[in-house]
Design a protein around this nucleic acid. Structure first.
Length: 424
RNA sequence: GGAGAGGUGGCUGAGCGGUUUAAAGCGGCGGUCUUGAAAACCGUUGAUGGGAGACCAUCCGGGGGUUCGAAUCCCUCCCUCUCCGCCA
């Protein structure tokens, strides 16, 4: 959520900022609603003040043993007007809140203009894509031929956009997970977290998935509803919801491995084959909570932590900065890491690292105590995939295929594979 | 699932219809003392919203109600703890 005070006082400038993303802020409607809020709020508070004063004098008169019936008679009908105003104010504030919750974050100044992913700007490439003597296969062809990667079984068990893994490929996915967790905890200073895979609506509102993106989520039939997490970002970032963190504890750095569940509504026909786009996938997530002045540096560091995994696995990748139109709702600036997939002959997203500034923190009421002022102030939140494990599995399979249908285990994963050097 | 006890400021915890505008302690901040620090002592210290400001309003788990007036009474939901039962 944006700072309501900022939106109020600098409406046109905010609208101009948001237009970069293609978001149309109805400034006239907002200004009108805000004017009504102000009028009704002043009137309501006036009435409340009067009620408090009169009630107090009733109490005092009673204490002196005086007859209070004339005082009470004077207040006939007073409560009705107050109640009307309070209800009106409540409705207006709800409307304002609804409006504010649906406004995306303002972008950092260095986010490039652009409308879609076609306008994202490549910053650099790392690693040389291998030359293959025979055309490299896609992971699903490799996996089904090797055995152990079975999409049909998943369709039978559940439906489309799921997969089953068995044997060495299942182990390879676990090895990748362990490797990532070990790197981030021992070399990058993250604390490992285990969290619920179902969350309540408040948590999703806090990180920005609700109210706008409910159709992307799996909702459980229950009252009140729970939702399957679309990313560990939700439960982990919500660790600081309604908290005031002491300054000396910052930055908070968590790494967390969870399954992620996404309905993929609206992605019909996209990446229908293979493991690229599934309803359920494994991800290792990095989350940081920082002081406001530290978040830009933390964003660079966190992205480098995700890149370190790709480098250790010797997987070619590139970093792109998302353009204005492609940056997510809650994010002020996002880097995507795209890994080279020889089978697709393309770079594909494997990590997304975002700085949310105080946008999530305001929704979460996630604060820290600033020692300079002694006051609680909004913290900054960041997160990034470190990495999407399912897609890393794909990348390893495609980049490490030997041309004869086998997959060589990357050196970095050997300690996790129980001596297995080749799959197939 | 059964029985009981509770949810109050950063934390502990008192208050159970009207001098509570939420006591007290801890912690934090400032000061005295000290070469420095600790201890001791003195002072100070909740959050959110509105207002240029003096100030005003709201907040005692969430929502609703009773009342001139609710942290306090009523309804409802959520959560925590203790005992019993069941269970990976």
């Amino acid at each position: 959520m944006l700072d309501p005070r900022l939106v109020r006082t600098d409406l046109d400038a905010v609208a101009k900022q948001l237009a970069r993303r293609g978001f149309q802020l109805d400034t006239a409607a907002f200004a009108e609603l805000e004017a009504r809020r102000k009028a009704v709020q002043s009137r309501t508070q006036e009435l409340q003040s009067e009620r408090n004063a009169r009630s107090k004098s009733v109490g005092q008169a009673k204490a002196r043993g005086e007859d209070v019936t004339p005082l009470l008679a004077e207040m006939q009908g007073f409560g009705d007007e107050l109640k009307r105003n309070e209800q009106q104010l409540d409705a207006i504030q709800r409307e304002l809140e609804d409006l504010l919750l649906n406004i995306p974050n303002v972008l950092d100044g260095d986010v490039p203009d652009g409308a879609s992913d076609a306008d994202n700007r490549e910053m650099f490439r790392w690693g040389e894509p291998r030359c293959f003597e025979v055309p490299p296969k896609e992971h699903f062809d490799l996996g089904t031929a090797l055995g152990g990667m079975d999409f049909e079984a998943a369709v039978k068990i559940t439906g489309s956009r799921f997969v089953t893994l068995q044997g060495p490929l299942a182990r390879l996915q676990r090895a990748l997970t362990q490797f990532m967790l070990d790197m981030h905890t021992t070399e990058h200073g993250y604390v490992e977290a285990y969290v619920p895979f179902m969350v309540n609506a408040d948590s999703l509102r806090g990180t920005g998935q609700l109210p706008k993106f409910e159709t992307d989520l799996f909702k459980l039939v229950r009252d009140p509803p729970y939702y399957l997490i679309p990313t560990a970002e939700v439960p982990v970032t919500n660790l600081v919801r309604d908290e005031i963190v002491e300054a000396d504890r910052l930055p908070l750095k968590w790494v967390c491995h969870t399954p992620c569940f996404r309905s993929e509504a609206g992605s019909y026909g996209k990446d229908v084959r293979g493991m690229i786009r599934q309803h359920q996938f494994e991800k290792v997530e990095l989350v940081q909570i920082t002081r406001p002045e530290d978040s830009s540096a933390a964003h660079e560091a966190l992205t480098a932590h995700a890149e370190a995994i790709l480098k250790k696995l010797d997987l070619p990748f590139r970093r792109v900065v998302l353009c204005a139109g492609d940056t997510g709702f809650s994010s002020a600036k996002t880097y995507d890491l795209e890994v080279w997939l020889p089978g697709q002959n393309a770079y594909r997203e494997i990590s997304s690292c975002s700085n949310f500034r105080d946008f999530q923190a305001r929704r979460l009421r996630a604060r820290w105590r600033n020692p300079d002022t002694g006051k609680p102030e909004l913290a900054h939140t960041l997160n990034g995939s470190g990495l999407a494990v399912g897609r890393t599995l794909i990348a390893v399979m495609e980049n490490y295929q030997d041309g004869e249908g086998r997959v060589v285990v990357p050196d970095a994963l050997l300690p996790y594979m129980g001596g297995l050097r080749t799959i197939g």
